[in-house]
Design a protein around this nucleic acid. Structure first.
Length: 568
RNA sequence: CGCGGGGUGGAGCAGUCUGGUAGCUCGUCAGGCUCAUAACCUGAAGGUCGCGAGGUUCAAAUCCCGCCCCCGCAACCA
């Protein structure tokens, strides 16, 4: 086994179906990275799961008429099923509400408290007498004092986008019961003393300057520059871990505190299932042995680059801190945000019904919002699937297979010596493969996928130059060499493709009667890689593995998902 | 004057840090080929790089200044 590589995908909030935006930002790139690192020979642990505590869950459960534990359990299973559908190779899909996470949260909190990074403050919060609970700002609704919108939320008016204080609302009422029987009460809470940790965090962030993409580093810098503020880590709620400090037994930890710790808690869930062979401490408390890569949307970057590392550093224990932090921008739908309630956008459950998971995986990796927000459109999606996968890659595989079959039968052709044509191809391939590998390592996906496509084009180019369909009529030996070269290139292409489209990669390999890949392609050893398939090796029956998306399908999908509705 | 990101041929992007003939994919047009999913290969047209007849420089998409437009964020909605 190679070096240890810990990979986490941001934990999605458990209520609600994930949409393509959630997938593109964290789940998918984390999976591609995990698959790639495994093929490179690293010992990978890919952790994901659902974030479950907080008012939103309580509220969701109430609406569903279920106890919150049951509601979360059901939704967690729904997430899990969708992740499987998307072919995510998570080593463990856990939950922030697990008892393991509770243990770790207590451990970290106690250490922070002992080290003097926890402070007490009294704050004012709105209490709903009928609901018998404090209300989070966004669960107080009323009339916006600025624009008169009647369903403005306590934190912000969705209509005029003005940021509000809940006490400003007219006709304020509880979003849970609708009761307007509210009052402001004083309540004591615990805060994480981030200002005290600031210099420690700053020093550490500086060490990440060249490891993080610009977007992540700039966002972290921005927060540090503005100066960190103390952050409340407790709430007056029931759904959460009770605070393990005398005087706070009736309060729970705030989601943002226990959510990132969830990565550790979930690793312990994984570890507890096979304690003899799995040791969570090896991943989280031996930082020198582990490279840790995180994936998330840009809104999550401040937590992962500043507050979570600060939390861990404040314990004084040697927790593993993030090495590479990939934050990406958003995927929009017709220029607007995905929104379940507005029925706008493609959600993962529907997406998987419309097309194979690998189509989505390919499109999203090739169009990763790395520099700015990206728009999803069905015609662009179809265009790329048709051109890249069908015409360029699929066609290359098919024409080589068919020509081999008709000229030599279903075996790797024997005979013919390499010419300058092959040597030139090898050199180009070695160059492109090492570029591709580098981009994958650097998490530069758009460039990686563009390079991958160049490799496919190079295959077609080689076939066009060498014209095996002509040569076969006059020089069987030469044709054998060309097609054998083509077949070996198919194998390489399938392996290079496998982190991105595992299912189709497997199918392509099955055409060559090869099993799933177990290792990466070594660009330095291109001669060996290109002669992997020995002459006379049996081949499978040629068949088309990709199919096109017709213009009619595009039209109907566009209508079905309201792609052209006027954006709000 | 809140903060951040973006504005490059019809569309989507790279190039900007480290100034030096503007590059890629799609689309369009022409040609080649006919093994292959009307697929593949080659070539061409098309931009002077948001604006300022602004500054620096022998030279600016790239550095500096001013302005405009789009997107996102503003500490519980990737």
């Amino acid at each position: 086994m190679g070096k240890k590589c810990l990979i986490t995908s941001a934990l999605l909030y458990v209520n609600g179906t994930p949409h393509l935006g959630h997938v593109i930002g964290c789940l998918l790139p984390a999976d591609v990275c995990a698959r790639f690192k495994r093929l490179q020979g690293d010992e990978v642990l890919f952790i994901g799961g659902t974030d479950e505590h907080g008012t939103a869950s309580e509220f969701g459960a109430l609406k569903a008429g279920l106890p919150v534990e049951v509601y979360c359990e059901q939704n967690h299973m729904m997430h899990r099923k969708l992740y499987e559908g998307l072919n995510l190779s998570m080593d463990y899909c856990g939950r922030t509400s697990s008892k393991q996470n509770q243990e770790i949260v207590y451990r970290i909190f106690s250490a922070l408290d002992k080290n003097g990074y926890i402070t007490e403050k009294t704050i004012e919060q709105v209490y709903s007498i009928d609901d018998q609970q404090f209300l989070a700002d966004r669960y107080i609704v009323g009339t916006c004092p600025y624009c008169g919108y009647e369903n403005a939320r306590g934190d912000q008016c969705e209509h005029c986008t003005k940021v509000l204080d809940p006490t400003e609302l007219k006709n304020a009422r509880s979003a849970i019961s609708g009761s307007s029987h509210l009052e402001v009460r004083k309540t004591k809470h615990l805060f994480l003393d981030l200002p005290k940790l600031q210099s420690l965090i700053e020093k550490w962030v500086k060490t990440r300057e060249f490891m993080w993409p610009d977007l992540s580093y700039t966002i972290a810098q921005k927060w540090l520059k503005e100066g960190l503020k103390e952050r409340c880590i407790t709430r007056d709620l029931k759904w959460g871990f009770p605070v393990n400090k005398p005087g706070y037994e009736d309060k729970v930890f705030y989601v943002w505190f226990d959510a990132p710790i969830g990565y550790i808690g979930i690793t312990k869930q994984w570890s507890d299932e096979d304690p003899e062979h799995r040791h969570w401490e090896d991943w989280w408390l031996k930082p020198d042995d582990v490279t840790y890569i995180e994936f998330m949307g840009k809104d999550n970057v401040p937590f992962h680059s500043v507050s979570f590392p600060g939390t861990l550093m404040g314990t004084g224990e040697p927790w593993t801190l993030v090495s590479q932090l990939k934050g990406v921008s958003y995927l929009n739908f017709n220029g607007g945000k995905f929104s379940k309630s507005a029925g706008r956008g493609v959600f993962l459950d529907d997406a998987l019904k419309e097309f194979p998971a690998d189509y989505w995986r390919y499109w999203m990796m090739a169009n990763m919002p790395e520099t700015s927000d990206v728009n999803f459109k069905f015609d662009a999606f179809a265009g790329q699937i048709n051109k890249d996968l069908n015409d360029v890659l699929g066609n290359f595989v098919n024409r080589v297979m068919k020509m081999t079959q008709s000229n030599f039968g279903l075996v790797v052709p024997e005979g013919g010596a390499l010419t300058d044509e092959e040597k030139q191809l090898y050199a180009t391939l070695a160059d492109l493969i090492s570029k591709y590998t580098q981009y994958m390592n650097d998490l530069e996906w758009r460039k990686a996928l563009a390079t991958l496509r160049e490799i496919w084009v190079e295959g077609n180019n080689y076939i066009a130059r060498t014209e095996p369909w002509k040569v076969a009529k006059t020089d069987k030996q030469r044709a054998a060499c060309i097609l054998r070269t083509g077949l070996n290139l198919i194998r390489i292409e399938a392996i290079l493709l496998s982190p991105i489209m595992p299912t189709f990669a497997k199918e392509i390999l099955s055409l060559l009667k090869l099993p799933e890949p177990t290792g990466w392609v070594n660009a330095q050893d291109i001669n060996k890689e290109m002669s992997y398939l020995a002459p006379n090796t049996e081949l499978g029956e040629p068949r088309l593995i990709f199919s096109k998306i017709t213009p009619e399908m595009v039209t109907s999908l566009s209508e079905k998902y309201h792609e052209n509705d006027v954006k709000e």
